[in-house]
Amino acid sequence: MSGRDYLGEFEHIVILALLRLAARAYGVTVRQEIEARTGREVSIGAVYATLDRLQAKGYVKSQLGEPTPERGGRSKRFFRVTANGVAAVNRTHRALRKMIHGLDVIGGYA
């Protein structure tokens, strides 16, 4: 990746959810975390589409867990943020902070 790539709005939200959930991050928990914190109803498809994109950029890695009976014998796919992903979050936050700096109408970011 270019190293100058900023995260899109939903990519940003998803990657922050992954950082919050740490080892418990898979489709269901990521979706629920986003809904609980933003009040925005998101589909599991939107979460996976974004995770796919983040994985293609090298910001996220995934691995399959063990199959469980409550999922009809299907495995969970766990996601974790890579060092590049953390760098992208920091880069995006820095850019946002610089853009917000000096604006009186928006408070409480930094």
Binding site: G27, R31, Y48, D52, G72, K76
Partner: peptide
């Protein structure tokens, strides 16, 4: 329908997530 449109990589995970919720 969901199965028809999901990629092979995520087919099992998405189906499992939906069933769990």
């Amino acid at each position: 329908l969901v199965n028809l449109f999901t990629s092979n990589d995520h087919a099992e995970s998405i189906a499992g997530d939906l069933l769990e919720e």
